[in-house]
Design a binder for these strands. Structure first.
Lengths: 380, 380
DNA sequence: CTGTTAGCGCGTTCAG
DNA sequence: CTGAACGCGCTAACAG
């Protein structure tokens, strides 16, 4: 069923049919009626989208790439909020939103280059993710959220280091045994509990070190994983820009309190889930190195920590101060001190930028964040 | 930057380049190396996805259409779980997931026909939604979740009527003033509070009727809205199959308890949100017709009801019995009696069916659900 | 307002 | 293993 057949049946030229669909005003009422009638009769579903976009040079699709398995788009609350903002802008412009099927394997590069889209939005991935090169190589407009930051791609993110410093100052105030509950450090996504380590440190032995989880089976587990777990956490070694900047910011805050990074215990979650956080937090909050302050990289992780504290009979902020990140709906009821930012707005901004429709402040204005003080920390 | 240019630069024919990408095994190592080198040098990003799919006759995209604004995909927890299942299957098959930009306006039909996809999955929409005809007209494989049910499209849904009956029997046991907290009745999505009405009833005046919300501005508000609000709720009049079947099921349950549908108060939410539910529930739980049993169509709505009850100082199940739907993570902690079903599995099933890769039981097995009894209802 | 021409970039033929 | 022709289905650009 092609346009030519409809044209023949309607007794008009192919271009008249094309116009009848694409620019109806350019065709006489009569011709349009005949075309519609013939199309109806033949069951012609309208111009073939693929052929049309080949000819026009645009697809009407905005591609979204996650540095994660595709299901993350709907499973992770942060990604979800971000994508809601992207979706809003897509709907405004009549663009479809195409989630490119990333699985973590090497074929992801091919899938990205095979995506028929007009622009890309990239949700946080690792600096060494080959997918990011593939995207840059397409030459299509692309905006990266969170990281990595590159000269050839647009970039949107809050100043994570400054925000982490602000949260750290708050949560570490008066603390003696601070801890950080962190996102994964790199693509191996190995969870661990250890102490901070200076960037130029060699292997520092810590008896408290342990591996709690394992990397997903389809992920390449590098030798760096276990090694790092015994070496302590070096912020500079993280290949996720967001994680790196937040670790730096927490380190800054503790340094300002006169402390040393090697005193800070760092638990790394392999996923952004309260469940996993609860298990890791239980480890942070018990034993000879039990912590009295936890700076978490998301509200989900902080909520898991709250649950662990409750189970251990620890009071907040009496025995433990705690901060989260994002100011999600659950943060206020839980009394959680947190960093407020709108991932939804940031998603919208990424989409606008990628589609070439920036709003007035999109290019220049910094992305907004603010510290929200609640009862999980002590300062007034 | 086309394939022909790469071929010229590499000193081979265009087809050699094509094979080098599409069927590398069919090309000599040397030719492949020269092609890769030339491509690298010229910055050729690989075969143009659009041209490739035009030629091949497949796009590698699974289209998803929601009977809602695009942001619903990420904002509504039920849609989100469903789509996580769809995404899982897409990732398994290396297919991209394209969310077709639906806004509720008349242009939605064009957007659907303009979608370059190999198959469609449709998330619950109204029987009279023109989008569903457009999808059928494309002739592409399509699977509808929830409704409408059509002979020409595959269909996946639980037996909502039977499940609602089961929940209703549970929650209405011993009740004197039952109520239903419902999803929207039709595309106008007007929220209201009124009583049930028999299907063949004329206009039944109810002084308790009120409009709580209004339809979104981009939605056509038909005259049926306000009129229906004063006429009482007739299950048969709902154009959303899921809503209709659940209303029928709740009616069945109350009838089995010897009651009449016109005694059942029905509050209709315009969205699936605890916030709106809280306001409507407050209305159900107060005044001369105060209810003592609420069957909600989702856990979100039930949780909103719980909040309203708490604020009014009502005890559950003492003063009020309550049931939800879906058995979400929040249901167990809240002690909510609910209908358990896996929207994630259903999403996966829809995707498999649409893509023509059904799993062993997909075609025949009924979709699973079960009643989960908790403390929000009274029976042992 | 309608028709003609000339491809968009690629991949499936089928020879060689 | 490689090359030449043809067309996937449509539309920009121009006549007429």
């Amino acid at each position: 069923m092609t346009m030519a057949e409809v044209a023949r049946a309607a007794g008009v030229s192919v271009m008249t049919v094309s116009y009848a669909y694409g620019q109806p005003g350019r065709v006489s009422d009569e011709a349009r009626a005949r075309v519609r009638e013939a199309a109806e009769r033949l069951g012609y579903p309208g111009p073939h989208p693929g052929a049309r976009s080949l000819r026009r040079g645009r697809t009407g699709n905005l591609g979204v790439v996650l540095g994660e398995h595709l299901t993350y788009a709907f499973d992770d609350p942060q990604a979800s909020r971000f994508l809601a903002g992207v979706a809003q802008v897509c709907a405004d412009h009549g663009m479809a939103l195409t989630l490119v099927p990333v699985t973590g394997g090497p074929s992801d590069v091919d899938r990205v280059t095979a995506a028929a889209v007009d622009a890309f939005v990239v949700w946080t991935t690792a600096d060494d993710d080959p997918v990011i090169d593939a995207i840059a190589a397409t030459g299509l407009p692309a905006t990266v959220h969170g990281g990595p930051r590159r000269d050839d791609l647009a970039f949107v993110a809050v100043d994570d280091r400054a925000a982490a410093r602000a949260a750290g100052i708050e949560v570490f105030a008066g603390a003696r045994h601070p801890a950080v509950l962190s996102f994964p450090l790199d693509r191996a996504r190995i969870s661990s509990v250890s102490f901070g380590a200076p960037s130029n440190a060699g292997v520092t032995a810590h008896s408290g070190t342990s591996n709690v989880g394992v990397a997903p089976s389809d992920t390449v587990t590098t030798e760096a994983g276990p090694a790092r777990a015994t070496a302590g956490i070096d912020p500079e070694a993280s290949t996720f820009r967001v994680t790196r900047q937040r670790l730096r910011g927490f380190r800054d805050a503790w340094a300002e309190a006169g402390g040393d990074w090697s005193q800070v215990r760092v638990a790394v979650c392999s996923t952004n889930s309260a469940r996993e956080a609860e298990a890791l937090a239980a480890e942070l909050l018990t034993g000879p190195h039990a912590c009295d302050a936890v700076a978490a990289m998301s509200d989900e992780l902080a909520l898991g920590t709250l649950r662990a504290a409750a189970r251990l009979g620890l009071s907040v902020p009496g025995d433990l101060t705690l901060s989260g990140w994002d100011d999600t709906d659950a943060a206020a009821p839980a009394g959680l001190t947190t960093i407020a930012q709108s991932l939804r707005d940031q998603g919208a901004r990424c989409a606008r930028t990628a589609l070439g429709h920036p709003a007035p402040g999109d290019r220049d204005t910094e992305v907004a964040w603010r510290l929200v003080r609640r009862v999980s920390t002590r300062r007034p």
